[in-house]
Amino acid sequence: MHITPLFETAFQGKIRKTPEDFQVDEIMNIPMDGEGEHQWLKIQKREANTDWVAGQLARIAGIQKRDVGYAGLKDRNAVTTQWFSLHVPGRTVEDIAVQLPEGVVLLEEHRHSKKLRRGALEGNQFTLVLRECAGDAEAFQQAVNKMAEQGMPNYFGSQRFGHGGNNIENAKKWFAGEFKPKKRPQKSMYLSAARSYLFNEILNARVQAANWNQAVSGDVLQFEGSHSWFVDEGEADIPTRVDSLDIHPTAALWGRGALPTKNEALALETRIAEQHEALCDGLERNGLQQDRRAMRVLPKNVVLQRQSDQEYALKFILPAGSYATVFLANCGEFVA
């Protein structure tokens, strides 16, 4: 889907010329027990997707793939570091490092009492190299600085929707009864794509209205660094708290139940839902419940360095579920 960039910056470049140009390091703050039924592994992978690596670890450990845990999916065309867990009660899988396929490296291993669950990470650090850059370098630098100070729209990235938006089209066909996904991961992928699409549509409308980072009447607001939210009942200090990045406006993650928004915010979300009734109905039929996601996210530890006339190094941290490609899309036009 199309997203409205925050800055109309005449700046272009290329990403992922090599996998090393796009590095992702998982940030996790879970103390290791040193004992327990699970063997946790810190893995670096190059040009490999997370699910495939999980399958390789299951093969090496002689366990079912469902007994391998990881916190989130990482890019394939990149060099990424993340944790996996193996459920191996009463034993330790030996010599894992020498059995791993090419491009997959074991960095650390520890024992833990619990399986690593999806979403159990604080965020990701991105280290990018932007090549063949051209255009208004000063405007690009200013856009990066402003997002570091004021935040950026928290769109779901295009990878959530599949190549050419195929995941959305397949979700529509499934909801219309034209076919049924055969496997649970495929079903989850289509549900996630449909839900993310609706969120992006609401956020995009707010960006176009220039109020995505402001509280409008009836907004649901989320605390910075938390998933907790509350409905704006007209408190006088709400605009100041939004401006100070203490709280953020949210948009719907669609599912069963009534929207918690009111007034102006409710009217917008209702209008978007009516435009995509089939997607909303499909999500509700499959048991998803109404939830919220912040429309604004604050990149942290942002560092931009110009390495040559046409090359930049860019480093920043985003919370789990936010996308480096969205950061780039808001400050220039970058293609792989």
Rank of each mutant, 00 (worst) to 15 (best):
D232Y: 00
E233M: 04
E233I: 04
E233F: 14
G234M: 15
G234H: 03
E235R: 10
E235Y: 09
E235P: 07
E235D: 05
A236G: 14
D237T: 06
R241K: 07
D243F: 01
D243Y: 09
D243C: 06
D243H: 09
D243S: 05
S244D: 14
L245G: 07
L245M: 05
L245F: 05
L245Y: 11
L245V: 12
D246N: 06
D246W: 08
D246P: 05
I247E: 02
I247W: 00
I247H: 02
H248D: 14
T250Q: 09
T250Y: 03
T250R: 01
T250W: 07
T250F: 01
A251T: 05
A251W: 00
A252C: 14
A252N: 09
A252D: 10
L253V: 15
L253N: 08
W254K: 01
W254C: 01
W254L: 06
W254A: 02
G255L: 04
G255A: 12
G255E: 14
R256S: 13
G257L: 10
G257R: 11
G257H: 04
G257A: 03
A258C: 12
A258D: 08
L259N: 11
L259W: 07
L259K: 04
L259V: 04
P260L: 05
P260H: 13
T261V: 09
T261R: 02
K262Q: 03
N263Y: 09
E264W: 14
E264Y: 02
A265R: 00
A265T: 06
A265K: 03
A265L: 03
L266N: 07
L266K: 08
L266H: 14
A267R: 07
A267H: 06
L268A: 05
E269T: 05
E269I: 05
E269R: 06
E269K: 11
T270K: 14
T270L: 15
T270N: 03
